[in-house]
Amino acid sequence: MKSVLSRFAQMLFVLWVVATILFLMFRLMPGDPTAAYIDTTFTEEQQQQLRAAFGLDQPLWKQYFIFIANAAQGEFGESFHHRKPVIDLLMEVLPNTLVLTLSSIIVAYIFGVLVGSWLAWNRGTRAEAIVVPTVLTLRAAPEFWLGMVLLATFGFGLGWFPSGGANSAGAAYGSEWSRIFSSDFLHHLFLPALTLALYLQGLPLLLMRSNMLDVMQEDFVMMARMKGLPEWVIVLKHAARNALLPVMTAFAIGIGQSIGANVVVETVFSWPGLGRLLVASVAASDYPVAQGAFLLIAAVLVLMNFIADLLYSVLDPRVSHGARR
C-alpha cells in the first residue's frame, strides 16, 4: 500500500514537472508571453478581463502558480479560433482518440501475443524466417506512410473505405455512444485502426517470442515436462503466463505513448482526435488549445506509465507478495 502511494506521489511529481516545462516553453517562445492567451482581435476590455482571469498582469512566479492551479482543474482558457473553452474542445475529440488507440492496440497485442508464442513454438522454421523480417519491416515503416499507402489503395483506389474523418457529413446521433457504435463510424475507423495495429503489433510479437524462448529454458518448464503435465498446461499456464508479464507492462505503456504518437495517423486520415487538434492548434498559433492538448496527452502518458508500474506489481507475486523469511 505504501509503495502504491509513493508511486502515485512520484506520478504527480512527474506530471508537475512536465506542466512546469510546458509553462516555461510557452513563456520562452519569442514575442509577448501573453499571446498564449490573448488573441489580438480581442477587444481591450476582453483582454483586460482575460489578463485578470489568468493573472497575466501578475509577475511571472504568480502566473506560474495560477497556471498550475488552473491546469489541475482542467482550466486551460478559451480557444482563439473556436471561441469556446479549451476543455470542451478536448472532450469533444477525446472519445475519437481513445476509440482509435484502444481498438488498434488491443487488436495488435492479441495478434502479437498469439503469433509471437506460435513463433517461439516453431523456432527455426521457415515460418520464422518469413514472419520475423516482415514484422521488423512493418515496425520500420513510418505509420503515416503505411496509412498513406493503405488509404491510396483501399480508400481512393478500391473505394472500399472513406477517405477520412470519423463520420459522414451530416450524420446526426442521439448520443456519443450511438455515434461510436454506428456502422458509419466503424467504417471510418477501420483503415486508421488497421494502420496503427500493423505498426503496433511488432513489439508484442517480438517481445512475446523472445520471452517465450527464455521461459522455455527455465527449470520450472523443464520440471513441468518431467511431471508429465499435458502440453497445453505447460505452454499456457506456465510458459505463457510468465512470458506475458513484460508484455502487459508494454501494453499499458504503449497506450500512453500511442495517444501522443497517433498525431500522424490522425492527420493522414483527418481523424478528429486529440493529436490532430494539437497539430492544428500549433499550426494556427491557437496556444491555449495547444497547451491543453499537450498537457492532456502528457497526463495520459504519465498515468499509463504509473498503471504499467502497478500492473507489474499486481501480476508478479515476487513484487506484490514481499519475501517472508
Partner: peptide, 19 residues
Amino acid sequence: DVALGIPFLPFTIVLSSFI
C-alpha cells in the same frame, strides 16, 4: 521519469513551432 513522461512527437512539434 520526467523525460519519459513527455509525449515525444507533440513535444517535437511544439518545440519546432517555437524555436
